[in-house]
Design a protein around this nucleic acid. Structure first.
Lengths: 346, 346
DNA sequence: TCGGGGGCGGAGAGCGCTCTCCGCCCCCGA
DNA sequence: TCGGGGGCGGAGAGCGCTCTCCGCCCCCGA
């Protein structure tokens, strides 16, 4: 507190102490051009002696860089204090993405800022703020298909990378997992386990990741000569998985295997199976998707398709950083391979 | 992309269009002093016409405010890519705190930046960065007792609020839940349910929240005339809860009630009880702590002590904002009341 | 009618950096 | 010995704001 009014050292102070100009200190600190090695040392000594740290605001005023990347969580059309938001934040999904982003951003000395946008006007304001130096670029996490934010960013020429394939094509890079191949792994596994009557619990029909999982699963089952796959639809929540499982059992009482499009629903499905007196995996084998903490918390623990979210987020950060450095870079998309994780439920 | 090189409008542009000086535009935008109402409108029209958004860097260079608050997750002594970190981020705890902070920060137009610190040198660097305008203040989430960061912040005179009571007193405000009273609620409830042989699974012995829960539980049990409470120690993870429950059962085979110091461990305890052939709640009643998503995912769903984390985080943000506005403010601590949430496990 | 006070708006400095431009010096080659 | 080129470091402008200081004008009261 008492030290608060003590003026912090500036470049000027360091320069005076080192006996050189401000420009030279700046060059040394930023590693620009060849500066006489002796001066180099003199300057660093002065920096350490004064405890100098460059002022971010002054630097970014001239460089037009903020050293900040925004993680924008975009929840189409919903209200700001929508319970969905708080549900989302308490979902491990969010934390894994944050952890992955930070792992790539920290070594680059870039800070991560969190942005939520609900209403469309908030989205427009965000774009304005971003253009005016709120952040150098954004990693976008859209919670709903048909979100307009990626398009707004692209139109404004702002660097952005989307996590998960957008519902409509957009001139922005994105990272994703091969949802179709992941679902195929689940299908191959259930068939290999000798299951004959295999069903599926899907996610929302308008979400690309969900659609890809359904398509991938059906295609793989068809390759095994199973053209008919009974299915029930959920919305990726625990409760919806429980309900969908009940529906599926009512329809297909002799079911002996089920692929559930995410772990949370699979956990719900386990409850419904337990309630219906089916043993897992003896009577019904269950395979989830994500390899989230829910898979480990489930009893029995879930066999599931691992989605390397941390790696995906880290890659998104790297793509974004590259684009910030060179805005002429072409957009790309990086698709990660899923992996089947065997546990007790199958 | 093509619009990228188009210079963005500055105060100067708005002033020219409105036919006033830069100072006047600045006054209107920031709502300072009485400006002639007619001019007021002229200026706002010019702002809208140009699409002007104030440049953050320029503004904060002179105001010495960044409009950013840092959420600092401080993991004492651990390495940066410690698995503990990624485990922490995927824990719903983190997301709930973030959601609560954002709910209080957004209305104030303040941005949230994420900072992780592991090694001590990172801690020193962070303090330097913060002093030099990385953020106006920090909300600190210490993952280990004895973390030095709160003290470093206090010594540097930087505004900071700690979530959870620090192990050693520190001249910084903090928010917490009354862990002792929460544990007492659990004790009262188990006794009221007619349980006679009640045990407890505790968290780490050096974490204040854990210690408070143990003390609160023992004190309440003593009030009910139960001076002896068998206990086993865990470390707040699912696995440790499972192991501790097995130990407790081995010690006290006739146990009919157990208080588990967090939901994750309680979920593990349920598995151990199931494995041991005990029915919950018929044979053993189980009460958790936190009311996290694990409580809902558990089967049976957990009776638990609700910790209002979102509210606590929002209050932390408000305390911090107040202190940033007025650094002479006294430090305070706000303690939230816990609440017992009744579900199927008791 | 004249003096004084209050309030509004403009001029201009200054926040702390980076970066361009230029001058000087040194060295090398003819 | 002299000319030219290269490289290092300094001077100074400028990034886009805010804020102090001051002048001017208007109105009111004596």
């Amino acid at each position: 507190m008492t030290t608060d009014n003590a003026r912090l050292p500036t470049l000027e102070d360091v320069a005076r102490l080192a006996g050189v100009s401000r420009a030279t200190v700046s060059r040394v600190i930023n590693g620009i051009r060849n500066v006489n090695p002796e001066l180099h040392e003199v300057v660093w000594n002065a920096v350490n002696a004064t405890g100098y740290v460059a002022n971010r605001a002054a630097r970014s005023l001239v460089t037009r860089r903020t050293g900040t990347i925004a993680l924008v969580v975009s929840d189409s059309e919903s209200h700001d204090d929508d319970p969905f938001m708080s549900r989302f934040f308490s979902d491990p999904f969010f934390g894994r993405v944050v952890g992955g982003l930070l792992s790539a951003l920290r070594p680059a000395g870039v800070q991560l800022a969190l942005q939520l946008v609900g209403a469309d006007q908030a989205r427009a304001r965000l774009v304005g703020d971003l253009r005016q130096g709120q952040a150098d670029g954004s990693v976008v996490l859209s919670l709903h298909p048909g979100d307009t934010l990626p398009h707004l960013l692209a139109d404004a020429g702002l660097p952005g990378v989307v996590i998960g394939r957008p519902a409509r094509p957009v001139p922005l890079s994105h990272v994703d997992v091969a949802n179709d191949r992941g679902a195929a792994l689940a299908a191959d596994h259930l068939v290999a386990r000798g299951r004959r009557r295999i069903g599926m619990i899907t996610g929302p029909v308008d979400v690309p990741a969900s659609v890809d999982r359904v398509d991938g699963f059906r295609a793989a089952m068809a390759r095994h000569g199973r053209s008919y796959v009974p299915a029930a639809t959920g919305n990726f929540t625990h409760e919806s998985g429980e309900r969908a499982m009940r529906e599926l059992l009512a329809d297909q009482p002799d079911l002996d295997g089920v692929f559930v499009a995410n772990d949370l629903m699979a956990q719900g499905a386990l409850s419904a199976l337990h309630e219906a007196g089916r043993r897992v995996p003896a009577d019904v084998a269950v395979v989830g998707f994500d390899d989230s903490s829910a898979a480990l918390a489930a009893r029995p623990q879930l066999t599931t398709v691992r989605q390397p979210l941390e790696d995906m987020a880290a890659e998104a950060a790297r793509l974004l950083l590259a684009r910030v450095d060179d805005p002429t870079l072409d957009t790309t998309s990086v698709v990660f391979e899923p992996m089947l994780v065997l546990r007790a439920s199958s």
